[in-house]
Simulated scan of single mutants.
Amino acid sequence: MGVRFIKISVLYFVLGVCIGMGMSMTHQFALTPVHVHINLLGWTALTLAGIIYHLFPQAGASKLAKVHFWLHNVGLPFMMIGLAVQLLAGVEMVPLIALGGTMVVAGVIVFAVNVFKRVQAPAVDAAAGEEQSPSM
């Protein structure tokens, strides 16, 4: 799952910088909130989650990691599409934005639960001074 999170985060990064470049080229900055959220919740948050899942494979292999992945990656596009339409067309998209935002928040909460359940420092064998794999 760590690699999957990192790869999808790169897609959000490309999208975010392309939106930023388009805004800077046209001097139209209406999509700034979309640009910022895609870069923060897509690129940054998912990259960090991917690194955590890679470093702690027991967390990445859990069902919670899969639930986190799908909530985050369905919710974020819903939220960003709704926000973009609202900003560009003036059409109220509050239900779609709220649905997507709620899904992302739920995904982040699932991530937090997963981290607290499965991310542990390796046990240290005091006699040998060596790290041991953590027991679950």
Rank of each mutant, 00 (worst) to 15 (best):
S133N: 14
L99C: 06
P33A: 13
G75L: 08
L83R: 08
A98C: 02
Q120W: 00
G20W: 00
N114W: 03
W70Q: 11
I109G: 15
Q120M: 06
G101V: 06
A45H: 01
M79A: 15
A126C: 01
V104A: 07
M80K: 05
E130K: 15
G90E: 04
S62W: 05
M80H: 04
H37T: 11
A61G: 14
S135F: 01
L40H: 03
L96S: 10
I6Q: 11
F78E: 13
G20H: 04
V67C: 09
A84H: 08
H72F: 00
F78A: 15
G107K: 06
D125Y: 05
V3K: 15
A30G: 11
S62R: 06
V74F: 13
G90C: 09
L96E: 03
A126P: 02
T32K: 03
L41C: 06
L48Y: 02
V36G: 11
A121M: 06
N114A: 02
Q120Y: 01
I51N: 09
G90H: 04
V17C: 02
T47V: 08
V119T: 04
G107W: 03
M80G: 03
A65N: 11
A98Q: 12
V91P: 02
L99G: 02
P122K: 05
P77F: 09
V3A: 15
G90V: 04
V10G: 00
T26A: 14
L48V: 12
F5W: 02
Q58L: 12
G50I: 02
Q58V: 08
S133H: 13
Y53D: 12
I38F: 03
G107T: 09
G60T: 05
V14G: 04
V17S: 04
F29L: 09
I6K: 12
W70T: 09
A49H: 00
A106C: 15
I81L: 15
L40G: 03
I51T: 04
F78I: 14
L99W: 01
F69Y: 14
G20F: 02
L41T: 01
G60V: 11
F56S: 13
W43G: 10
G82M: 09
Y12L: 02
V91L: 15
G2K: 12
H35C: 01
A121L: 11
S62N: 13
F78N: 11
V3S: 14
A59W: 03
Y53E: 14
G129V: 09
A30R: 07
H54N: 13
A127V: 07
S135R: 15
G16T: 00
M80S: 14
M23L: 11
V34L: 10
G100V: 05
L46G: 01
I52Y: 00
G60K: 11
V14R: 04
V94R: 06
L64T: 10
P33W: 04
V108W: 08
L31Y: 03
H27K: 07
L41I: 05
V108C: 08
V74H: 07
N39H: 13
P57K: 12
V85R: 13
G22H: 06
H35S: 01
H54D: 08
A128Q: 15
A65W: 12
D125W: 06
M136H: 12
L87V: 06
Q58Y: 07
